[in-house]
Design a protein around this nucleic acid. Structure first.
Lengths: 340, 340
DNA sequence: TAACCTCTTGTTAGCGTTCACAGTCTTGCC
DNA sequence: GGCAAGACTGTGAACGCTAACAAGAGGTTA
């Protein structure tokens, strides 16, 4: 047995030999174990530095049974909202010393979600964050390996899994009440796709605000979050000739579409029709006119979900069946005004 | 030594015992080794199924020295462009059977980039994709562990690392030539931040198109990709009273800002000033007016980069110092027209 | 019959770390 | 001086898998 192949990166035993100690002492230095003589510690550290040693986290994961990796299942992560959520999660996880492994799905269905979870579980993640904005996604939690810590973001609260979400209902209330406060008789609503929990929450908040003010609740128009669907909804609103004076649109992209439909036909916003969006995408401030909207704090959602998940991991997978709600914020701009 | 704890998930040895074979035979079945009797194989598979066995990929990674995980270093991944690039990479990697571990940076500096690469290397990734849109990011490649396969996306081609990128220069040429073709005497340019390679490429293409047409090259205005900076640039363009008839803006978000600045002052687009953007974000089609722009194929960039990276991994880290260019596409809409 | 394949299976030894335990060397105190 | 308590360090055995080799069964050939 000759000397270890020089081209292979050094392992703990190499450091041990170089420092004249046992591999275990090296391990102790690396793990900040208290009982190591200061002189020994510096000798080991010096050897580590000299050899350019880096600890093999895979071997470590094998024995500790912790990979310090979290899995994230996302959906449509090129959209601003989901992208920001995933980004918030990633930042928070890294700040806590965890790696993040991401699976981004194109379509949400229970099977795809289940596959994604299995896939991440196989990889040995310590916990999973599922961004589960659709009803069908929530069911996928049933297939979680037993004892696997998990948290749902923007999901519903049925199973055992804790949920972190923005207060969609409250946000929609803010939007609707703002419009009512400006003197509008009622508020129309362009909602997101019906199987999305966020869409549902926003519709619910809108309806609740109207009802508690004793106003008539108009029929909702439904879009798919895209600017195009907003445009189509806008054209349908135009067809209602004069009835409509205020619209709460379930996201900013659709609001952009509505804006274009109205502007094309010479309808002035906000003089003739007021519009409120949801999300506060970076573009919203520069729409024509700048869009009044509801801002979601995606960073807080990310931080909270990681916090809940790590707490769960700390307790060994036992979860506390909690629901954490992040409040949204009203952002006033120029797409709303009082009548006349 | 009693029977293995029931609560612990089964390992290969458990399957072996259940199927009445050795663990090695189980391994062979799992790895599709040819020399296993059909009857044995089914017995093993049946045992795997019955016990709900899942192979421990961490242990596997330790011995094979392959984690089947790729690292991605991204930057500002909430923006549409970067988010789409990362998404394309993730899709392509997963299709090839690789996990994706992502680090998303907020600021690009050599140190942060270096840390991110170290971080991923520690985790034992098989290769790294660096989305390196800034000059300073490119330098971080020097700190790549030797033998670590890597590919740069939207980076420059100096070091040993292959690069995959969109043809920014060509895209900018398309935009500029389109405007010249409409009869504009020259084309103004709102560029991205100067240390961004993409910004540089777009400026270069714009300049080249003007020069080869023998036109004067106006002073460029510089933004930071944000709608706000576009708005400010727009105001400065307005101050040039009448000189400006056509503008190539380096991305769609800034183009939105320019659009707002012009519209606010009653300048008509495209009647008085024509505008072309870059990226084709989903909103662009619904700007007022719908934005003529250059579309980047982020999916292709992702697929290509993974392909290059996997080829490199297959060769054992030896790289081929290539540069792969993805062509952009001109998308005609309503923000441009000929003069008068 | 012996020699030599091929097919199939089992045995043993790692991969690089941490954990449990067993040492050895101080130090303090009677 | 002796002896226990503590500080420090080393030894061996896991963790769950694959690689390398060995070995038995069965067939073919000389």
């Amino acid at each position: 047995m000759g000397p270890r192949d020089e081209r292979r990166s050094p392992v703990m035993a190499d450091v041990a030999k170089a420092a004249g100690v046992s591999h275990q002492t090296v391990s102790r230095v690396l793990n900040d174990h208290p009982n190591v003589r200061a002189e020994t510690r510096t000798r080991v550290l010096e050897a580590i530095d000299r050899l350019g040693y880096r600890r093999n986290l895979v071997a470590r994961a094998l024995v500790t049974r912790h990979s310090r990796t979290l899995g994230v299942v996302g959906f449509n992560t090129t959209l601003y909202g989901p992208a920001s959520t995933v980004d918030g999660i990633e930042q928070a996880a890294r700040a806590a010393g965890y790696f993040v492994s991401i699976v981004s799905l194109r379509t949400i269905d229970t099977a795809g979600m289940r596959d994604a979870i299995d896939y991440l579980a196989d990889q040995g993640v310590d916990g999973i964050v599922v961004v589960a904005p659709q009803r069908s996604a929530a069911r996928a939690f049933e297939s979680l390996p037993r004892g696997m810590p998990a948290v749902a973001v923007e999901g519903q609260h049925e199973g055992e899994v804790p949920v972190v979400s923005v207060d969609q209902v409250g946000g929609a209330r803010l939007a609707t009440e703002h419009l009512l406060g400006l003197g509008h008789e009622t508020v129309w609503h362009v909602s997101g796709p019906s199987d999305w929990l966020e869409a549902e929450g926003r519709t619910e908040g809108w309806r609740a605000a109207l009802e508690s003010a004793g106003r008539t609740v108009p029929e909702t128009l439904t879009g798919d979050w895209s600017p195009r669907s907003g445009y189509l909804a806008g054209r349908r609103l135009l067809a209602m000739a004069g009835q409509v004076t205020a619209v709460f649109v379930a996201n900013d992209q659709m609001a952009l579409g509505v804006l274009r439909a109205l502007t094309e036909e010479g309808v002035k916003v906000p003089e003739q029709i007021s519009i409120v969006g949801f999300d506060d995408i970076p573009e919203a401030e520069f729409f024509l006119p700048p869009l009044t909207t509801i801002r979601q704090d995606f960073g807080a959602v990310g931080r909270n979900s990681i916090e809940v998940l790590l707490r769960q991991i700390g307790r060994g997978g036992e979860c506390e069946r909690e629901r954490l709600i992040v409040p949204p914020r009203f952002v006033a701009r120029s797409s709303t005004s009082s009548l006349r």
